[in-house]
Every structure is written in structure tokens, then in C-alpha cells.
């Protein structure tokens, strides 16, 4: 390519540099998404290639079989957990952005869980929650709160809270660091001016901090929501979806690979995809309105 004109080189570069990435994206994102749509109208089992067109039967099943849609109740635990996580993360981000000795050390230590191996984390909590030998119950016992001991994974009213907590534990530091990044980009003279005007700490937070990082807060909310809708690996690794912990995605996965109902599973996946896209669309709308 040494004696080619730059025009010819340009074609070569564009073609050579973009073909493989575009093909990969088409093959592993777009083709699956569109074939998913097609499968959702068939009775495909997922095993062979035989399938028959069944129209909207799968979708009808998704919306009428109560045990399919009701699992969103379990997803709600992850959503509430995520909201609490976002609020607490913002609080600590504010603390760690202000003057404080050792704030970088605190930031690093609170962020640590995010880099830990996700399967190992779930198994670690299996040990922590163990009803007889788990460190949580032992700890409660040792500080004289023995009556607070629980079957953290055995009690059906508690198990989803226990599982959602793992997610909060893991992602709290990430939210906090993202908030710290956003807070540091707020010009300091805004706060100085507010101080001169006699604003209290809370007022400065309410009228300077929150509006300045509104887009980040919104983004975190949408991530919390989509993350909760797609919650999967914690209940799946910990309980295999047993004891009323199955989420919509774990149900979809089981439907496809365990019960060989790939057509129905595809319809569930399409429904989830539409819900997620709906929320992202709403958020974009909100964001643009905020930006104007």
C-alpha cells in the first residue's frame, strides 16, 4: 500500500479497519436480537432447528401465566436495594469530596468490593449467611443480639433482602466513585458564593450540588432500574432460583435451557428488552428536557 494514492488508502483503511468490528457486532448483537424476535413467534424448543409459527401465543402466555410476570416482585427487592445504595453512595461521596483526612484511603477501601470476583462474592456471602456457622449470626450472638439471629437464606420473607444486600455491597463503591467524579467537577466558587450568602450546608447541597449533578443522578437511577430488571447472577449462583428467589432473567434462562421452551423464553426476553428500552427512552427524554 506504499505507492497508492491517499484516496485509495482511505478506502482500504476504512474497509479494513471497520469490517471485522461491524461483522462482530452484527453477528453477536443484532442478529441474535432479531432472531430472538423471530423465535418468540415460534414453538422452538431450542434443541433442533424445527420450529412452527405460533403467532402471539407465547406473548399471551407471558402475560397470562401468573407465575411468569409475578417474579418481577423479586426484582423489586433489587430495585429498592439499588435506591438505598444510590442515596447512601451520594451521602458518602459528599463526605469524601469535602475536607477530610485520609479520604483517598477511604475511597479506595469502600470501592474494593466492586473489583472482587463476582461468583466468589456470592459464595462468600453463602458462608456469611449460613444459619448455624455463618459469621453474621455468630457476630450477632457475640454482641448480645442473639435474638436477632435469622435464617438469612432459609426464611422466604428474608431471602430476597439478603440477596439484594449482596448487590448493594458490591456496587455501592462504584456508585460512590462515580458521584465523587461528578461532585469534583462542580466549580468551588459556587459554594464560596453560597457561603457568603449565608447558605447552610443542607441548602448548598439542595440548591447547588443536586442540580449540578442531576444528569448523573438520573443516569444512576436508570442503571438501578435496568440493573434490577436484569438481576440474575446473585440469585442464580446462590439459590438456583429456589425458595422464591427467581428473577425474570433467571426464569427466562431456565425456560430456555432447562425446560426447553426457547420460543416462550424468547418472548420473555423480548418483553424485558421492550421494558428496558422504554425506561431508557423516558430517561433520554427527561435528560433533554433538563438540558434545554
Amino acid at each position: 500500500m506504499f505507492n497508492l494514492s491517499y484516496k485509495a488508502q482511505r478506502y482500504l483503511i476504512l474497509f479494513g479497519f471497520l469490517t471485522i468490528p461491524v461483522v462482530l457486532s452484527l453477528m453477536f448483537s443484532y442478529y441474535p436480537a432479531f432472531s430472538l424476535l423471530y423465535y418468540s413467534f415460534t414453538d422452538w424448543t431450542g434443541l433442533g432447528w424445527e420450529m412452527h409459527w405460533v403467532g402471539f401465543a407465547n406473548y399471551k402466555e407471558v402475560f397470562t401465566r401468573p407465575e411468569i410476570f409475578s417474579v418481577f416482585e423479586h426484582n423489586a427487592y433489587y430495585f429498592v436495594g439499588g435506591l438505598i445504595q444510590t442515596a447512601v453512595a451520594l451521602f458518602f461521596a459528599v463526605i469524601l469530596t469535602g475536607k477530610l483526612k485520609g479520604r483517598n484511603v477511604f475511597r479506595a477501601m469502600l470501592f474494593l468490593p466492586y473489583v472482587l470476583h463476582s461468583v466468589a462474592i456470592v459464595i462468600m456471602f453463602k458462608n456469611v449467611y449460613h444459619s448455624e456457622y455463618g459469621s453474621l449470626n455468630l457476630f450477632l450472638q457475640s454482641i448480645g443480639l442473639g435474638s436477632w439471629q435469622q435464617e438469612w437464606l432459609g426464611n422466604p420473607h428474608l431471602v430476597n433482602v439478603s440477596l439484594a444486600f449482596i448487590s448493594v455491597w458490591k456496587f455501592f463503591g462504584l456508585s460512590m466513585v462515580i458521584f465523587i467524579g461528578a461532585l469534583q467537577s462542580i466549580p468551588a466558587d459556587l459554594y464560596e458564593a453560597a457561603k457568603i450568602d449565608g447558605a447552610s450546608g443542607w441548602q448548598a447541597f439542595r440548591f447547588i450540588t443536586v442540580p449540578s449533578i442531576r444528569s448523573v443522578i438520573e443516569m444512576m437511577m436508570i442503571l438501578t432500574l435496568t440493573g434490577a430488571l436484569e438481576a440474575f447472577d446473585i440469585p442464580y449462583i446462590m439459590m438456583l432460583g429456589a425458595n422464591g428467589t427467581d428473577t425474570f432473567v433467571s426464569k427466562t434462562v431456565d425456560m430456555a435451557f432447562k425446560f426447553q421452551q426457547a420460543g416462550l423464553a424468547s418472548a420473555m426476553a423480548v418483553v424485558l428488552l421492550l421494558i428496558v428500552m422504554f425506561f431508557i427512552f423516558i430517561q433520554r427524554k427527561l435528560l433533554f428536557r433538563g438540558g434545554e
Binding site: 457486532s25 448483537s29 443484532y30 442478529y31 441474535p32 436480537a33 432472531s35 430472538l36 423465535y39 431450542g46 435496568t226 436484569e230 440474575f232 432473567v249 427466562t252 434462562v253 430456555a256 426457547a262 423464553a265 424468547s266 420473555m268 426476553a269 424485558l272 428488552l273 428496558v276 428500552m277 431508557i280
Partner: peptide
């Protein structure tokens, strides 16, 4: 492509 949740398209 970013907004397509990877996990749900695994069947395909």
C-alpha cells in the same frame, strides 16, 4: 447495541 441486555439475547 449498548441497550440490548446481553443476557436476554443469549438464547439466540
Amino acid at each position: 447495541a449498548q441497550i440490548i441486555p446481553m443476557i436476554t439475547t443469549q438464547v439466540a
